[in-house]
Write a protein that binds this DNA or RNA. Structure first.
Lengths: 133, 133
DNA sequence: ATCTTATGTCATAAAAGCTCACATGTCAAT
DNA sequence: ATTGACATGTGAGCTTTTATGACATAAGAT
């Protein structure tokens, strides 16, 4: 099980996410409705959020506070993911060639993953991020 | 917010803990009834488990599989906590004296925290432990 | 054979979450 | 000033999840 898997593991009910992000249930559901997050569901249709989901919600919150609207935030996310994909592809190529100065690449990828959270992230996000590596 | 605080943050509903530990709700509640864990509660009285709780449950499971009964497990936990306290005290003394070869001490403390999980821990625990530092 | 320990199962009640619908505050454009 | 879009609040009705408590039982210990 790798880091990505762990960050995407569905763990939290909405009540916990509300506290972690200081968002209302309405807000969280609204952002999902607009395809900014895609929490998993239990068999009984209850939302289950991963660390990644929480992270994204904090990013949404920060961007909204900076005046970006949901459409803009969606774009930010898309671009971010593209960049990550490109880096991953490069990373895999390297792995096959066994060149593997992968440490540098991993670092770059991480920085990209966290791009968009330019500085002014909430305290909570700062704290939460420490759950990860 | 320090590492300890984070590990003790109430996050998971019992359903998630069931999957994480592969224990039944009955088992989890039974262990609580016998004071092996003390999950937090929501206002509405639902259990909320922390990473530490999950960790403890995995340890309980491992020890049970090794034939230790609940009374024995309780003792193991108590001894473990004692040791941690002693180390912490020493650590604080050092901090005041500003001697601070604290890295070594932290390491020792961590190893003690994880003592009792001698080797044969479950796969899941191994995976889960990677959430932490 | 009986007791203890750990766990399963079921009933009942309450909490938490879901969707849908309607209301509202804030801007920007007309 | 009016309209409209966006983001969010609120409430009703319903379903899922969890809690507690009681009773049942398998496996060991006495």
């Amino acid at each position: 099980m790798n880091d990505n898997t762990r960050r995407n593991m569905p763990l939290f009910p909405i009540s916990i996410v509300m506290k972690l992000t200081e968002l209302s249930a309405r807000q969280i559901r609204y952002y999902e409705e607009h395809d900014l997050i895609h929490p998993a569901r239990t068999e009984g249709n209850r939302r289950l959020f991963s660390f990644n989901d929480v992270d994204k919600l904090l990013e949404i919150k920060a961007l909204l506070e900076q005046g970006v609207n949901l459409a803009g935030i969606k774009r930010v996310f898309e671009l971010n993911e593209q960049a990550v994909n490109i880096l991953q592809a490069g990373h895999q190529m390297q792995a096959k060639k066994e060149v593997s100065d992968s440490a540098i690449h991993r670092r770059l990828k991480r920085e990209l993953m966290h791009a968009g959270r330019f500085g002014k992230t909430s305290l909570i996000q700062g704290e939460l991020s420490r759950f990860f590596h």
